[in-house]
Design a protein around this nucleic acid. Structure first.
Lengths: 341, 341
DNA sequence: CTGTTAGCGCCTTCAC
DNA sequence: GTGAAGGCGCTAACAG
């Protein structure tokens, strides 16, 4: 229609060489009129680039991830990439998902919460396939990674609870396939130990990062006889802290007077008046952007040195933590101002 | 390596014809050993099928969508489709996103919350491109659609509030580009009118389905002088109801004693002890599955008659609604049991 | 049952 | 500055 060859059209559409202004105009007009849409598939076949990035999320339903998705997606879109989204939750494991993404010839994969032992991740790294781990790392795998300083966060929580005089502290863990859960808890435990406070086995629950399990675990903890019942619960993510808070409410247990609760992540919801949760802030948006950016860089150059970006974590004291209740039922003073440390 | 032709390999990998068991075995072995991954791109070029489905979401951050995404994604995965995910929020409009998806040669598009005037949707339907509208419909467009009975839901809310004796009722709308907001409010208004209760202009706010705007709107409403201040607020989605609830708490306004709040959607969170929100249930998961299923069917057969599936909506009375406060400050009785009507 | 052949729509080199 | 030709990896006919 423009009276030119395919090659010329290709050139104007991809800035792939010199084209006379007049020709360029004619081509663009024809494109317009025909409503021509270049076929990315065919292009991908020859360029070996799809401008597609796989994103594997462990549970979209956790409010942490939508925030992350939004920010990463935005940056990727700006850089001309689209996301092939997979929620790993109940479906196939990393392995199967990865296979699908590779078939699809995505240019890279963003793992939002890989598991520590992930064989898929390991294999991809060996093959020098562009991937980025966000939020969690994988043991013994060197690749682009974006995390926060989870150990520091865990220590800060412990110190905060110790300062408030808590001795019987419960913990709701994620699961041990997650570096986040492990790091937060290890540091937490270490800090308690250095104050000679022990974390009793009966007060440690596995919550799998899930609301419902944390809810149940908390209910169980709260039925322990008074002398063994925890005065504080540290949940390794906010979603589980919400479970704990709600369980406490269901049991008519006053927070923070009778029970302190701490979360981790500082998802926007945690600041809502309904919760005012004491938690550890991770710079979510920054991390999401950094992760997406790393991936794009990696795709551009497969052989640059892998980089790990560690973001700081900050304890945010809100209103779900207070001094440990004394045996007598005097009502303890309650923290009111929001402080960052 | 298996000593056969490409064609044969193709046949064993796609059940594309008869293959001798022995040959099949040899091929599969070779595939295994070579770690061969078929190139979906090349396949797509010839079959004109990518097994990719575009999903356009208006705001992943609204807890409504992750639930939806999870369920739809699950069904699509089962049927062998992957999702190309786009969050429409701050980025390009439908138009641009659609263009990208078409370039990518997705087999179909799932719109999670299209806008009423969406030209993109209209154009796609004209071109007989497989799309499904979920949650919202588009005026004058006939295509596969999955919605709930929003009008009935709106009426039910109105009746509930009227029965409780509310007269000064505020409304926090979404925006008028959404069929959901419009239908819920129209029906709500009609029902009030038939009880001779008027919806005053000063009590109608636009919340854009956003938490923050609903929060601000509620604060404004609650600063009105007592005689003009609403005794109940109907938010057209749960996210905004959470905003209202939190704003009420920030203002030390007791819910439901001094202020009733109603939402819409019944996202899982709405049942949490922290909220116990009176709301309208939509069978979220069923809708998500139905929508995905419709899309797959449509892709299989472009010329089947378009179908609209309307799911029922159910008022769930929880603990954020109570009889309208009387001028005197006697504390009104408060609903405690969860009832469905 | 299996191999051969001809594209799918595009980009890229190489002439002109 | 532009066109012709080849090929990306695969599937779909058609032979045999």
């Amino acid at each position: 229609m423009a009276g030119v060859s395919q090659a010329t059209v290709s050139r104007v559409l991809n800035d792939g060489g010199p084209v006379a202004p007049a020709t360029r105009r004619r081509v663009l007009e024809a494109v317009q009129q025909l409503g021509y849409t270049p076929n990315a598939i065919a292009r991908g076949l020859v360029t070996n680039r799809t401008q597609l990035v796989g994103v594997i999320v462990s549970d979209v339903t956790n409010p942490f991830y939508p925030e992350f998705l939004e920010a990463s997606g935005h940056l990727l879109a700006e850089r001309g990439f689209r996301m092939v989204f997979h929620n790993a939750a109940k479906h196939e494991g990393d392995d199967e998902l990865t296979r699908l993404l590779l078939e699809q010839r995505v240019d890279g994969i963003l793992f939002l919460s890989a598991e520590l032992e992930s064989a898929a991740v390991r294999r991809l790294v060996e093959r020098r396939f562009p991937i980025v781990l966000a939020n969690r790392y994988v043991d013994g795998v060197v690749c682009d990674t974006v995390v926060t300083d989870n150990r520091r966060g865990g220590s800060a929580v412990a110190r905060h609870l110790l300062e408030l005089g808590h001795k019987r502290i419960a913990v709701i863990a994620g699961h041990d396939r997650a570096s986040t859960s492990r790091d937060r808890l290890d540091a937490f435990r270490d800090e308690l130990a250095s104050a000679a406070v022990e974390l009793r086995e009966e007060l440690v629950a596995e919550g799998e990062f899930r609301y419902d399990l944390a809810y149940e675990a908390t209910r169980r903890l709260l039925t322990l006889p008074v002398g063994r019942r925890p005065t504080a619960i540290f949940c390794v993510n906010d979603l589980m802290a919400f479970g704990a808070l709600n369980a406490a409410r269901a049991t008519r247990m006053r927070v923070p007077e009778q029970l302190s609760v701490v979360g981790f992540d500082a998802v926007p919801m945690s600041g809502w008046e309904a919760f005012r949760l004491t938690t550890v802030r991770q710079p979510l948006t920054d991390m999401a952007v950094a992760a997406a950016d790393l991936l794009v860089e990696r795709i551009r150059d497969v052989r640059r040195a892998p980089r790990t970006t560690t973001f700081p974590s900050t304890l945010i004291v809100r209103e779900t933590t207070a001094p440990a209740p004394r045996r007598t039922s005097r009502r303890p003073r309650r923290a009111t101002v929001e402080t960052k440390r």
